[in-house]
């Protein structure tokens, strides 16, 4: 059963067709990876899915509902969370605050009850904290809990972004190049975590990734994109050996 579908998705920036008639569907519980050379339109697809960009054509279907018109701030509450290619953490806040913000979609309190910090607000805060703490434990971030993001090394920031996305309690997780900038060891950790997210937490993953080793290790299916157009779909090895994909990467 498919959890997410992109149906003939397109967007233009001026003359550039950054995404041009892309159709794919992501089954519940799988890791689906989009690959492609730089500028192929992978991040743009993510921005379309999280509704930051307005598509010029096509439909997005999530969990059986058309979400093409849903405003961007409602996406998290539906169960779609994402990370960013160029790390978009809240830098001058602690790691804990970053993760707590991810609980925003689950907030129940109104402005005035927060102004007075009524017991109901406190209760909810403790609940959020508990949820966040589970993710901290899952990703082994305990020692950085109270550090400000600006003071954290790059690798930890990457994991923090993953943690923040998990804290929203997503059904679908969008990971934009989770291994970029990580060393070999950190990339291996990332691979294990992605597998754990899929197997232990049962979260469906839609991923963009350049590192083919990581792609082969974790992906169930792969979509290759070039100039905004899909050129191949299938298992990691099928797509890697597809002649069009080879040509796209070699610039033929």
């Amino acid at each position: 059963m498919s959890l997410f579908q992109a149906d003939n998705l397109s967007i233009n920036f001026g003359g550039i067709k950054a995404v041009d008639g892309v159709t794919f569907d992501v089954a519940k519980g799988e890791v689906f990876t989009i690959i492609g050379p730089n500028g192929a339109g992978k991040t743009t697809i993510f921005n379309l899915v999280s509704r930051i960009y307005e598509p010029s054509g096509g439909r997005l279907v999530f969990d059986g509902n058309d979400i093409t018109q849903v405003p961007p701030h409602k996406i998290a509450a539906l169960g779609i969370a994402r990370t960013f290619q160029n790390i978009e953490l809240f830098e001058h806040a602690t790691l804990l605050q970053n993760l707590l913000l991810a609980r925003h979609a689950h907030k129940t309190s109104g402005f005035f009850s927060e102004l007075l910090f009524l017991p109901s607000v406190r209760r909810k805060e403790l609940e959020h904290r508990e949820a966040v703490e589970k993710v901290i434990e899952f990703l082994d971030l305990q020692q950085y809990r109270d550090s400000f993001i600006v003071n954290l090394p790059y690798g930890v920031r990457k994991v923090t972004e993953l943690a923040r996305a998990l804290c929203t309690n997503p059904k679908l997780l969008l990971l934009d190049e989770p291994s970029s900038g990580l060393n070999v060891e950190e990339t291996e950790d990332m691979a294990f975590w992605i597998q754990d997210i899929k197997n232990l937490l049962g979260i469906t993953v839609l991923m963009v990734e350049h590192d083919m080793k990581l792609v082969s290790a974790v992906s169930d299916r792969v979509l290759a994109l070039n100039y905004g157009r899909p050129i191949a779909t299938g298992t990691p090895s099928e797509v890697q050996s597809h002649p069009d994909v080879v040509r796209a990467y070699l610039g033929g």
Binding site: I52, I75, F90, Q97, L101, A102, S109, F111, E114, V121
Partner: peptide, 22 residues
């Protein structure tokens, strides 16, 4: 409370804040 965190989030990254439901 959530309101204060949302403010800080907007200050540091509007796009991330939005994607987290702010």
């Amino acid at each position: 409370s959530p309101t204060g965190r949302a403010w800080v989030a907007i200050r540091d990254s509007e796009i991330a804040a939005q994607s987290m439901g702010v």
